[in-house]
Amino acid sequence: MEWKNLGERAVYENPWFRVNLADVELPDGRHLDHFVIRQRAFALTAAVNAKNEVLLLWRHRFITGTWGWELPAGVVDEGESVVEAAAREMLEETGWRAGPLRHLMTVEPANGLSDVLCHVYWADGAEYVSHPVDDFESDRREWVSLERVPEMVRGGAIRSANTVAALMLLHHMRKG
Results as ranks from 00 to 15, higher is better:
residue 19 V to Q: 01
residue 19 V to R: 08
residue 20 N to G: 10
residue 21 L to I: 11
residue 21 L to F: 00
residue 21 L to K: 06
residue 22 A to K: 05
residue 23 D to R: 15
residue 25 E to V: 01
residue 27 P to N: 01
residue 28 D to Y: 13
residue 28 D to V: 15
residue 28 D to L: 09
residue 28 D to W: 13
residue 29 G to T: 05
residue 30 R to L: 07
residue 32 L to C: 12
residue 33 D to K: 15
residue 33 D to T: 03
residue 33 D to Q: 14
residue 36 V to Q: 10
residue 38 R to E: 12
residue 38 R to K: 14
residue 39 Q to V: 01
residue 41 A to I: 00
residue 42 F to W: 13
residue 43 A to W: 01
residue 44 L to C: 10
residue 45 T to M: 01
residue 46 A to S: 03
residue 47 A to E: 02
residue 48 V to L: 04
residue 49 N to V: 07
residue 49 N to F: 14
residue 50 A to S: 13
residue 51 K to C: 02
residue 51 K to S: 14
residue 52 N to L: 14
residue 56 L to R: 04
residue 57 L to V: 09
residue 58 W to L: 14
residue 58 W to M: 12
residue 61 R to F: 15
residue 62 F to M: 02
residue 62 F to V: 06
residue 62 F to S: 15
residue 63 I to M: 07
residue 63 I to A: 14
residue 63 I to D: 15
residue 63 I to C: 04
residue 65 G to R: 08
residue 65 G to Q: 07
residue 68 G to D: 11
residue 69 W to R: 12
residue 69 W to S: 03
residue 69 W to A: 06
residue 71 L to F: 05
residue 72 P to C: 01
residue 72 P to K: 00
residue 73 A to K: 11
residue 74 G to K: 06
residue 74 G to A: 00
residue 75 V to A: 07
residue 75 V to R: 08
residue 76 V to D: 01
residue 79 G to W: 11
residue 79 G to I: 08
residue 80 E to V: 15
residue 81 S to D: 08
residue 81 S to E: 08
residue 82 V to G: 01
residue 82 V to A: 08
residue 83 V to H: 01
residue 84 E to N: 06
residue 85 A to Y: 13
residue 85 A to T: 11
residue 87 A to H: 04
residue 87 A to V: 05
residue 89 E to N: 08
residue 90 M to V: 04
residue 90 M to G: 05
residue 91 L to H: 09
residue 92 E to L: 15
residue 94 T to F: 05
residue 96 W to P: 00
residue 97 R to L: 11
residue 97 R to A: 14
residue 97 R to Q: 15
residue 97 R to G: 04
residue 98 A to H: 01
residue 99 G to I: 05
residue 99 G to P: 00
residue 103 H to M: 07
residue 103 H to F: 08
residue 104 L to C: 08
residue 105 M to A: 09
residue 105 M to G: 01
residue 105 M to V: 02
residue 106 T to I: 09
residue 106 T to C: 09
residue 107 V to G: 01
residue 107 V to M: 09
residue 109 P to K: 02
residue 109 P to I: 04
residue 110 A to N: 10
residue 110 A to M: 11
residue 111 N to S: 13
residue 111 N to F: 08
residue 113 L to D: 03
residue 114 S to F: 06
residue 115 D to K: 04
residue 116 V to Y: 00
residue 116 V to F: 00
residue 116 V to M: 03
residue 116 V to R: 12
residue 116 V to S: 05
residue 118 C to G: 11
residue 119 H to R: 10
residue 120 V to Q: 15
residue 120 V to T: 14
residue 120 V to H: 05
residue 121 Y to D: 04
residue 122 W to S: 02
residue 124 D to K: 13
residue 125 G to D: 07
residue 127 E to Y: 02
residue 127 E to R: 08
residue 129 V to Q: 07
residue 129 V to A: 05
residue 132 P to R: 03
residue 133 V to R: 12
residue 133 V to N: 02
residue 134 D to C: 10
residue 137 E to P: 03
residue 137 E to D: 08
residue 137 E to T: 11
residue 140 R to Y: 05
residue 140 R to G: 06
residue 140 R to I: 00
residue 141 R to D: 02
residue 141 R to G: 03
residue 142 E to S: 13
residue 144 V to M: 10
residue 145 S to V: 00
residue 146 L to E: 03
residue 147 E to R: 11
residue 149 V to T: 11
residue 150 P to I: 10
residue 151 E to N: 05
